[in-house]
Simulated scan of single mutants.
Amino acid sequence: MLYLDHAATAPVRPEVLDAMRPYLTGTFGNPSSHHTYGEAATDALDDARSRVARVLGMRAGDVVFTAGGTEANNLAVKGIVLAALGTGRRHLVVSPIEHESILESADFLRRFHDIEVTMPAVDAQGRITADALRAQVREDTALVALGHANNEIGTVQDVSGLAAVTHTAGAALHLDAVQSAGWLPLAGLGADAVAIAGHKLGAPKGIGALAVRGRIPLEPLLHGGGQERGRRSGTENVAGAVGLAVALDLAEAERAAASARVGAATRRVIAGILAAVPQAVLTGAPEERLPATASFTFAGVSGEAVLLELERRGVVSSSGSACAAGNDEPSHVLLACGVDPGVAQSAVRFTFGRETLPDDLPRRLAALVAESVRAVAG
């Protein structure tokens, strides 16, 4: 079986398991305990925090460990906006193509805290221009929350340019880097908060991180023991934090080479599918895209039916975000890009891992996709 759904989750790396094992067995202490076992756990947690911060271009004290990317995005969007209420800033900007964890956090703030939420338009390739954002931010904007790279179509945003627009208005910029971590550089982009998730990088599910610059007030969402400097109460997942740090370090060390190698293979996949399937249309930006993402629409057929045919032929992929799996509605990302709702329901996404891909993969995958589309079309 060929697994081409790494954007949904990736396998845990052996090096990560090896690094985590001591903190699941002999060194199992609670970091809040003031004895030898607790101190060993604290040391491991501090080291993991420093390693994550280094890759994100933040300080160690900026990093809050979470249960994953969804919690990290919730904490950033809700926590920063709620903390800004006393300043009179009651406006939030999110784009219409964001992950559900950002969009639904924004909707929560609108419904329960009377926060005004506005959205800049995206172009047909899912890009947010500086002018589009400039038309949305204003004096009472507390936060702009954007994805670094879209999880469905792979389009990469000009974060530095968008950060400059955001900061001119005195607002903070939160960057959802769950998909871009390990593929794109994250330091020096100008973001005030950055979210990542371990299971996209080769760490286990259930661990993530939010880095928030110390000057940005953050209202906690979880209350209790005051862990994570009071920003996220609850006994820390020490083994998970260690695993996340190791996975992020490994991905960062391999990033340039992996991006070039996988990106070249992905471009061949795109060319092969476009040549083999007449109705195939690439979604997202043709150039400014994640190196491991190839997403298409196939007008006139059901994307879910194509996926079933592909799995029968030994290929596992997806129609888009795993967080929206089972939803019969067309992708909100494709709709925001101006894709017809019927065509949007034909979407199929292939996302690759960091391993070396077989030389014959582009040709073989193109043939399998063509066979699957023909079978569905009848």
Rank of each mutant, 00 (worst) to 15 (best):
A336L: 08
A203F: 09
D249M: 06
V93T: 06
P220N: 10
D340L: 13
D192I: 14
G147L: 06
T166H: 02
A347G: 07
T351D: 03
G284P: 03
V144T: 02
A209H: 04
D114I: 07
D43N: 12
D249T: 15
I270A: 01
D140M: 01
M58Y: 06
T297M: 07
V63P: 05
W183P: 01
R312P: 00
D131T: 13
G300D: 04
Q157E: 11
H332M: 09
S331N: 04
A258H: 03
H332D: 12
Y37M: 15
T166M: 02
A60Y: 07
A195H: 09
V281T: 13
V81T: 15
N151C: 10
T356I: 11
R255L: 04
L282P: 08
V262M: 01
P204F: 10
L274W: 08
G170A: 06
D114H: 05
A44F: 12
G263K: 02
A275Q: 03
A344C: 11
Y37G: 13
G170P: 03
R268W: 00
H35M: 14
L210C: 05
E39K: 13
G88M: 06
A67G: 14
G326T: 09
T129I: 10
G190D: 10
R21Q: 13
T27Q: 15
E219R: 15
N237K: 11
R289H: 11
G69R: 05
A264S: 09
A241E: 12
V238R: 03
T155D: 05
R21I: 12
V63Q: 04
F65T: 08
L361K: 07
R268I: 00
A336Y: 08
R90W: 01
E304L: 14
G243A: 10
E15G: 02
L24G: 04
D249R: 14
